[in-house]
Amino acid sequence: MNETTSTQSVAEVMAELATLEDPKVRLVNEKHGDDHGVKLSELRAIAKRLKTQQELATRLWDTGETPARLVAILICRPAAFSPDELDVMLRAARIPKVHDWLVNYVVKKNPHNEKLRLLWFSDPDPVVASAGWALTTERVAKNPVGLDLGGLLDTIETQMKDAPDRLQWAMNHCLAQIGIEHAEHRARAIGIGERLGVLKDYPTPPGCTSPFAPIWISEIVRRAR
């Protein structure tokens, strides 16, 4: 996507976001830990109109406001950030949706993502560590060469049960991905999931796959046959 010359100021974007605030949307978002009331579809529409604008993205991020940060993520150039900049941003991304989008839309596309994966993986802050696990899950699926899959399963087996929610979710995703992608580890991954019971009772809407690793692994493998 070509970068465009800014036609809107930060103040103008913030004013537009304020007009889109919906108390009903905020109520739903707050149940997931998100502190805003703007529909994601409306945020994406703003970003589509603005196109790629790195300077504006940086300034929107600096407002600290969740809707502005989500737009910033969508209009930035992921490769433009240094590892230090992304580290600071990730540690400031305490809102779940901001954290999720930053990791998936920016960090994963940044050329320094492996350096950041190693930096964050064992961080004492569980929210930061969850980003390291998310990047590890990406490697499990796309570029597993050099990963110690057995060692990852060892860590999951000993630490996932008592991990804080967001870190536990990220570790569980890694567990499922190992079981899905690597047949030689599948039985052990399923066994770990069954023994730990993490997310076994998670409410799953009709037509969706349960995040309980044994079910998740078995269902995705079945579909691939």
Results as ranks from 00 to 15, higher is better:
2 N>I: 10
5 T>G: 08
6 S>M: 08
8 Q>F: 13
10 V>Q: 02
12 E>Y: 04
13 V>N: 01
15 A>E: 14
16 E>R: 14
18 A>Y: 01
19 T>L: 11
24 K>G: 01
28 V>M: 05
29 N>R: 07
29 N>Y: 00
30 E>H: 11
31 K>C: 03
32 H>V: 11
34 D>N: 15
35 D>L: 10
36 H>F: 15
37 G>D: 08
40 L>G: 06
42 E>T: 05
42 E>H: 12
43 L>V: 07
44 R>H: 12
48 K>H: 10
51 K>V: 13
51 K>A: 15
55 E>G: 06
56 L>M: 04
58 T>M: 03
61 W>V: 02
62 D>Y: 00
70 L>M: 09
72 A>N: 01
74 L>E: 15
75 I>Y: 04
75 I>R: 01
90 L>G: 02
92 A>K: 11
93 A>N: 09
97 K>E: 10
99 H>K: 04
101 W>N: 12
104 N>Q: 08
105 Y>E: 11
106 V>H: 01
108 K>Y: 05
109 K>C: 06
116 L>Q: 02
127 V>R: 14
129 A>I: 00
135 L>H: 07
135 L>K: 07
136 T>R: 07
149 L>V: 09
150 G>V: 08
150 G>K: 13
151 G>S: 13
154 D>M: 06
157 E>S: 08
158 T>D: 08
158 T>E: 11
158 T>Q: 11
159 Q>A: 11
162 D>K: 12
163 A>N: 06
165 D>Y: 14
170 A>W: 00
177 Q>F: 07
179 G>W: 10
181 E>V: 08
181 E>T: 02
184 E>Y: 08
184 E>M: 05
192 I>K: 09
194 E>N: 05
194 E>T: 15
196 L>V: 02
200 K>P: 02
206 P>K: 15
209 T>K: 06
210 S>T: 06
211 P>A: 01
218 S>K: 13
219 E>Q: 12
219 E>L: 02
222 R>A: 14
224 A>G: 09
